[in-house]
Simulated scan of single mutants.
Amino acid sequence: MTIDEIIGYIAAFDGVLTLRPGPGDGSPELAWGDTFFYYAPDGRIPARTQPFATIVTKDYPGDERSRLNRPGTFRLNIGVGAEVFRARTGRAPRDANSIDYDPSVADTLIAHPVYGTAGWLAVVDPGPRTAPTIRELIRTAHDRARAERTRR
């Protein structure tokens, strides 16, 4: 799956606000080229809320293990919550750091290398093996974000 295919898939869900930071928009330079997805039916970034999914195209400080600085490499990150995280990994999010895996392997569902403990999963360079799973997890994350927004 390409970045544009993933963006198109997620942006088609109801109430999604897609942010693509770039020069001149006031965002930090480090975020330029990445994409952030919020459930925001009013079109405004919700206060005190994280995106429900992100696409990152480069290594961030403290998050270099996925080796995203390789040409053409990106990682899709999905906030699925504890229950789905446990179902997919066999571990509670609090144990994410004890899962032994290589976070740079392409087209493989993994605990997010930094935010796994918060119930996030990730895929570097999603492809045919993970595409159906990614679509399901994105729907789950979107539904969670919508439900959270409704509770407020």
Rank of each mutant, 00 (worst) to 15 (best):
N77F: 11
P93E: 07
Y9F: 14
F85Y: 13
G90P: 02
G127L: 14
Y38A: 07
A11V: 01
P132K: 15
L17K: 07
E136S: 10
A118R: 12
W120Y: 10
P113W: 04
I10G: 12
R48T: 08
P28G: 05
Y39R: 10
I138E: 06
R94C: 04
P103F: 03
P71D: 13
T18C: 09
D25K: 07
G119V: 07
D63S: 07
P113N: 09
R139Q: 13
A145L: 04
G79T: 11
D102W: 11
I99T: 10
D34N: 15
P113D: 10
V84F: 01
N77K: 14
D63Q: 06
D143M: 09
I45C: 13
P103R: 04
R151A: 05
G22A: 11
G33Q: 15
I55L: 10
A141Q: 09
G127H: 14
V80E: 15
P93Q: 05
R149E: 02
A82C: 03
G15R: 04
P103D: 07
K58F: 00
I78P: 11
D63Y: 01
G62L: 01
L19C: 06
G15Q: 06
I99R: 08
T18R: 08
N97K: 11
P21M: 08
D95S: 10
K58C: 01
E29P: 05
G72Y: 13
D95L: 06
I110S: 03
P28L: 05
R75G: 06
D42F: 10
T140A: 12
A11F: 03
G15H: 05
L76S: 13
I6C: 05
V16M: 05
L109F: 04
R146C: 02
T57R: 12
P46F: 09
H142V: 04
Y101F: 12
A106K: 07
P46R: 11
R91Q: 07
D125E: 15
S66I: 01
R67S: 05
P103G: 02
R149G: 03
G22T: 02
L137S: 08
N69S: 04
T150P: 00
G24Y: 10
Y60L: 02
Y115H: 13
R86M: 07
A31G: 05
Y38H: 13
G72F: 12
E64P: 00
G62I: 00
Y115L: 11
P23Q: 08
L17T: 01
D42T: 10
L137F: 11
A122P: 13
P61H: 02
D4F: 03
A92D: 12
G62T: 00
